[in-house]
């Protein structure tokens, strides 16, 4: 898995994380991406959109830049949102397009030296994210957590999972 040599370790870990997520969602139909099993309030597309919003905020917004994705996504996939509250299904191709392109954009902007200032963010008492490198490392944990949720959504539909 090639990562530019000037990138820190967290970026390779992120690439590995994304590899595992993508192999679980690639090839799923729109119906499978949108299916909400009984007792759940999320679907696979919500988990993908949620990660897209979170990564955008953790990297760009906390580094002082505008959100690099449509602001409406925060109302669909942001913290405390649910897929059961959607009035209509979001544009899946558009969401997936942003999801797939964002890691490349972050790497390019990192190499270009864009992430110089970072507003410290408290994750748990006593532990803060203080740089974009730490933000990417934290995102790997967050993305892994949602891979787990995606696996259970696939299992609920009787779909085979690749697993860890």
């Amino acid at each position: 898995m090639a990562v530019a040599p000037q990138l820190p370790l967290a970026f390779k870990t992120f690439r590995i994380t994304r590899f595992h997520l993508m192999r679980e969602v690639e090839g799923l139909t729109p119906e499978q991406m949108l299916h909400i099993p009984e007792g759940r309030d999320d679907n696979i597309l919500w988990n993908v959109g949620h990660l897209l919003c979170s990564l955008s905020r953790l990297t760009y917004v906390f580094s002082g830049y505008d959100l690099p994705i449509p602001k409406a996504y925060l109302g669909l996939f942001g913290k405390d949102t649910t897929a059961t509250a959607w009035d209509a299904a979001p544009d899946m191709d558009e969401v997936m397009g942003h999801f797939i392109s964002l890691p490349d954009k972050i790497e390019q902007d990192y190499v270009a030296g864009k992430f110089t200032d970072y507003t410290s963010l408290q994750i748990v008492p006593g532990d803060n994210i203080t740089s974009v490198e730490e933000a990417v490392a934290f995102h790997c944990f967050h993305e892994g957590l949602h891979i787990g949720k995606i696996l259970t959504l696939k299992e609920a539909m009787g779909l085979p999972v690749k697993g860890g």
Partner: peptide, 19 residues
């Protein structure tokens, strides 16, 4: 790199445990 992967692996299982 191995420790980084451990974090991914552990967080996947946290996601499974939450579900």
């Amino acid at each position: 790199e191995s420790l980084g992967f451990v974090i991914i692996h552990e967080s996947v299982h946290i996601g499974l445990a939450i579900a």
